[in-house]
């Protein structure tokens, strides 16, 4: 199981991510009860149904899902999980930047998938605030070091929109 890091601590996780088994489609899959993170296709196909039976709704975005396609729905989500199938696939950083900076998404933004120590600093800067650290990695060490590896940054990003040159004395 991945370890969820939130607010600088390992945190419990009430959320279940709905995965489609073989033969299931977004239209046919049974919607489980509880706190569920729905893949974008399921959300798009079953939006009314999901809203009617879930108070707390999560969304899962894959690297090739376009934020623009769900921009009008962001108020429904308590959590949006952005998947990194491989940590070298950097599309999720743009997804997060767009969600936070352009569409002003305020809920939990969770990095899931191949989430590793050395990417956490970048992930935090683009706006992730929870991190499903890959199974087997040292969460305590990551909490101690990974988010503060650099004490400043040149560019503007979600957590500090002002670039260093606007803050330099």
């Amino acid at each position: 199981m991945p370890q969820l890091i939130k607010h600088n601590a390992v945190s419990g996780d009430s959320w279940l991510t709905l995965a489609l088994n073989e033969g299931e489609t977004a239209d046919s899959v049974a919607l489980p009860a509880g706190d569920v993170i729905f893949p974008l296709a399921v959300w798009q196909a079953r939006k009314t149904e999901i809203i009617s039976c879930h108070k707390r709704i999560g969304l899962l975005l894959q690297p090739d899902n376009r934020v623009e396609d769900v921009a009008g729905d962001l108020d429904y989500f308590i959590v949006i999980a952005v998947n990194f199938p491989k940590f070298v696939d950097g599309r999720g950083y743009s997804t997060a930047s767009l969600l936070r900076q352009r569409y002003h998404y305020q809920g939990e933004l969770r990095a899931v998938g191949d989430v590793l120590h050395d990417q956490l600093f970048f992930m935090k800067r683009v706006g992730f605030d929870s991190f499903a650290l890959k199974d087997g990695k040292n969460a305590e060490y990551a909490i101690d070091l990974a988010f503060t590896v650099f004490g400043d940054a040149y560019q503007g990003a979600t957590t500090q929109p002002q670039p260093a040159f606007r803050r330099r004395a």
Partner: peptide
């Protein structure tokens, strides 16, 4: 030089 600083550890574009 200004661009060098901007490219350095750019959080969104570290894994192009």
């Amino acid at each position: 030089e200004i661009m060098r600083q901007w490219t350095t550890f750019h959080p969104e574009f570290a894994f192009l």
